[in-house]
């Protein structure tokens, strides 16, 4: 009896979580231009509109470009830092950890406004470089946390073994450690990419018209009257998110198998 009630509530919560997303996806295939059901017919006109438009497609390219570059930069900086943190002990580790995780905790609006003020005089506002740097800053904690988690499954004795066999620290890292934690590093990069793909507030404050990302363009679209092209953009973003989720699940599965074997 109690179990039945629990299931009822649980299913209602699952419905609450999924329904809004599921509800808007079919709208993007509508042949009409209304935001409600029943659909007058099915068509791909809103996707044609998306791919033919002067601002949606560039926004999608901006998102991919800025996301990839920001994820690359965050991974390049975050992976060695995670390795350093992993070998570290004591008070300095706690402080360093706090500094690295701070961008996760500080409200994004504060980062956005502070960067607007700091980037202004050095000419980084309304540039791709500025957006990439800002998004890398926001994504780097996710890389560090994920790589640290992957390193938990790595036995440090192997590094000593490598050193005993004559490998320098750099060689030992690249030949022994990195291959084993690679799924974790890749998952961290995906997290950083997803963070950039999700980000609106920084884009709202420091991106110019030429750096508009997909979420930023959606924000603009939602502020006027919502067109069905916006739902097509939303559907494409949902597809991309599902792809990223599956990628991470696959990478984490691989990481576990590697740690186990």
């Amino acid at each position: 009896m109690a179990r039945g009630a629990l299931w009822a509530v649980g299913l209602l919560v699952a419905l609450f979580l999924m329904a809004p997303i599921v509800a808007i996806l079919p709208l993007s295939f509508s042949a009409g231009s209304f935001l409600f059901y029943p659909l007058p017919g099915l068509s791909l006109r809103w996707y044609q509109d998306f791919f033919g438009s002067d601002f949606w497609l560039p926004a999608a390219w901006n998102s991919l470009l800025i996301g990839t570059a920001a994820a690359g930069l965050a991974t390049l900086l975050g992976t060695p830092a995670a390795f350093g943190l992993w070998r570290m002990t004591g008070a300095f580790r706690a402080v360093a950890m706090g500094v690295v995780l701070a961008p996760m905790v500080v409200p994004v609006i504060v980062v956005a406004v502070a960067l607007l003020l700091a980037f202004g005089p050095i000419g980084l506002v309304a540039t791709h470089a500025g957006m990439i740097i800002a998004h890398a800053t926001l994504g780097v904690p996710f890389v560090v946390v994920t790589v640290l988690a992957a390193l938990e499954g790595f036995d440090p004795v192997q590094l000593r073994a490598a050193a005993a066999c004559g490998a320098g620290p750099l060689r030992a890292f690249f030949r022994v450690c990195l291959p084993q934690i690679a799924p974790g590093v890749a998952a961290g990069a995906v997290f950083a990419f997803a963070t950039s793909l999700d980000e609106v507030v920084v884009a709202l404050f420091i991106a110019g018209p030429a750096q508009r990302t997909l979420p930023r363009q959606m924000f603009a679209g939602l502020n006027d009257s919502i067109s069905l092209t916006t739902t097509a953009a939303a559907a494409l973003l949902v597809g991309l998110s599902v792809l990223l989720l599956l990628t991470v699940a696959w990478l984490q599965g691989r990481g576990k198998r590697q740690a186990g074997g």
Binding site: P20, I21, A23, I24, A194, L197, D198, V200, P215, M218, F219, L222, I226, T230, T231, A234, L237, V238, S241, V242, L244, L245
Partner: peptide, 10 residues
């Protein structure tokens, strides 16, 4: 995993 702006749009 789905972006905040999409869920707000929904």
């Amino acid at each position: 995993w789905i972006s905040l702006i999409v869920r707000t749009a929904a």
